[in-house]
Design a binder for these strands. Sequence first.
DNA 1: CTTTGACCTTCCAGTTGGTGGAAGCCTTAT
DNA 2: ATAAGGCTTCCACCAACTGGAAGGTCAAAG
Lengths: 141, 141
Amino acid sequence: MNIGDVARLSGLPAKTIRYYEDIGLVSPLRSTNGYRSFRESDLHKLAFLNRARSLGFTIDDCRNLLQLYEDNSRASADVKQIAMEHLIHIDAKIDELIEMKKTLTHLVHECAGDHRPDCPILEDLATAVSGETSPKRAVSN
Amino acid sequence: MNIGDVARLSGLPAKTIRYYEDIGLVSPLRSTNGYRSFRESDLHKLAFLNRARSLGFTIDDCRNLLQLYEDNSRASADVKQIAMEHLIHIDAKIDELIEMKKTLTHLVHECAGDHRPDCPILEDLATAVSGETSPKRAVSN
DNA sequence: CTTTGACCTTCCAGTTGGTGGAAGCCTTAT
DNA sequence: ATAAGGCTTCCACCAACTGGAAGGTCAAAG
């Protein structure tokens, strides 16, 4: 299979697949013409990666998950560990976003949103003690 | 005021303040020794930026908000517009994360998490049609 | 036989929002 | 005199790609 085929089948852009090869997540063979030649197993890996990424796992998580995936003597506890840590991250991000949403929703409701210059949103931004809503830096990933 | 002072007072790291100068968000004066010399107005801007960033506004949003902030004849509708668009973004991210959380929570509960290799999490990653939980790419920011 | 168009290749740069570190002034205190 | 701390610039790096340029390959159509 050429890259276009696996791109269609895995759902990943060709660019992303090349990038994944660059960083060592897949290692397709090469045809004599220099084209990448993907096996079924490569396609499976790429679909795996797409799914894992869409669940928000980092590339580093994906690397570990792939390794466990290919290790038939793995312990499911190791996989669960990665997933649970990721869940903690997700929860933290959700909390952070909900905090932002609360504050912003409040401010938006306060603001007349008309032609006049008076704006509670700007007033808040200008005067609020920063870090009230989120002591850490904003959402990272 | 030197950069250390405004860093302490605004809550932003000095590095970030220099970066904000680079991208044109603040334009402090310079002392004869080459040190940046911040006015009260610069400090206010930086605190404003810190607050806006902590609410998840992009740098580009911040640029627009700052401009409105300094324009005494602004219409509050313009500010509200930016805030409301940002709220839509936040909502989308929350939804995406909640979807991920649901899927992952389910998988984690299914997984025994012991020494055995059988793992529903890996099975899902390997077989699920990707894009079920989130048709677009994972959470961006 | 050539040309068109779709694929494929590599490489370089840009994205977002900073952060880390090196090398080297400036200032103040000891 | 020198040490500590603050300031300067510049360059590189993070995640996870994405866009585009310049050029090779292949199959079908004229």
